[in-house]
């Protein structure tokens, strides 16, 4: 008897639940611009793309008349479904994070011509009218930082100066950092006639700080003096190694001086890729009816989309600072090839 009672309760509950009907509260104020973000498989707390993008959305949610929501994708097959989820709920702008969503975004943009899309780290060729690519000339910031790192390496260990990196996965957005970084080191060698070596490891994972640390240590064992951690949490592991061994580090994406309390005192600077600012200004442009649909939002040195974080606790010699800022100007003016 008890069983049947339970089952009928269950049934009735389900009917009631489903019968609650379409009046589901969405938690958005009426009239707000609805902005949805679909993460890639890294998740919203990946210490990288997704997290920084979401930071921009959150800021827009607080400061503008915007209601921001996100869905985390658990798999490649989820991308289209999750975009559809927002599109069917009549969202005004859907931000998709990362080149992995390039395909799904294009398809869905075609399905929903009235919805605006923004995609991080991806540009369509030919462009799609309702999609704005949000890309970053990270190399513009990474190149001077490579130069800076080389300079600091010489400063630290003039006998055998070495610059290293701990990378996550070997994928283009990471490579963009690293290629320009290496070019920067080489440029330093050209300019100063030094022989700063450049070496690094890809851990093959964005979420492996323990491996990042072990491999960072290994790099330091082989003589690296400055470590750039590039690749989510794995890179942070590399910075932890630098901290433990008294070497210098360089952060990525945001000013990691603020996000890595443990390692902040060894950070020379960070290669900033201001996803949050980019997303914020794309949202702002939509509100102002200036949405760059079919075009690109390019984060560059010029518009502050990428840049160098301020120097904090590590002393950088005056002349090196000067050289770096000269290079920054040259890169911004397009006078130097960043190698990307």
């Amino acid at each position: 008897m008890r069983k049947y009672t339970l089952i009928s309760i269950l049934l009735v509950a389900l009917v009631l639940l489903s019968g609650c009907g379409p009046a589901l509260p969405e938690g958005c104020e009426k009239g707000d611009l609805k902005v949805g973000m679909v993460s890639d498989v890294g998740g919203i707390d990946d210490a990288s793309f997704n997290e920084n993008t979401w930071a921009g959305l959150e800021r827009a949610d607080e400061e503008l008349a915007v209601c921001a929501k996100f869905i985390e994708s658990q798999a490649q097959a989820d991308y289209e479904k999750n975009i559809t989820e927002f599109a069917e709920q009549d969202y005004d702008l859907i931000i998709t994070v990362g080149f992995l969503l390039g395909d799904a975004t294009a398809k869905m943009a075609e399905q929903y011509p009235d919805v605006n899309f923004g995609i991080i780290d991806f540009a369509y060729d030919p462009p799609i009218p309702n999609v704005a690519g949000i890309v970053f000339n990270v190399d513009e910031a990474s190149f001077p930082i490579g130069y800076l790192a080389a300079g600091m390496a010489v400063e630290q260990d003039s006998d055998d100066p070495q610059v290293g990196y701990v990378g996550g996965m070997q994928i283009p957005p990471v490579e963009q950092f690293i290629v320009a970084y290496e070019a920067g080191v080489n440029y330093y060698n050209e300019q100063h006639g030094t022989d700063v070596k450049f070496k690094g490891v890809y851990v093959g994972d964005f979420e492996a700080p323990d491996q990042g640390k072990i491999q960072g240590n290994s790099l330091i064992d082989e003589g690296a003096d400055v470590i750039m951690g590039c690749g989510g949490k794995t890179g942070n592991g590399g910075l932890a190694a630098a901290k433990e061994r008294g070497k210098l580090g360089i952060g990525v994406d945001v000013d990691q001086y603020n996000t890595l309390p443990n390692e902040k005192d060894i950070l020379i600077t960070s290669t900033m890729k201001r996803l949050d600012n980019a997303v914020y200004s794309v949202i702002e442009s939509l509100i102002n009816d200036e949405f760059p649909g079919g075009g690109l939002y390019i984060g560059a040195l010029a518009n502050g989309g990428v840049g160098l974080a301020p120097y904090h606790d590590v002393d950088v010699p005056e002349d090196l600072q000067q050289e770096v800022s000269d290079i920054l100007n040259a890169v911004e003016a397009g006078e130097l090839d960043t190698g990307w």
Binding site: D205, P209, D210, K233, N236, A240, N262
Partner: peptide, 14 residues
């Protein structure tokens, strides 16, 4: 011990 922070699935099959 490693980084002083928790990350999802940080044991990764170890």
């Amino acid at each position: 011990d490693v980084v002083g922070a928790f990350e999802d699935n940080m044991t990764r099959g170890q």
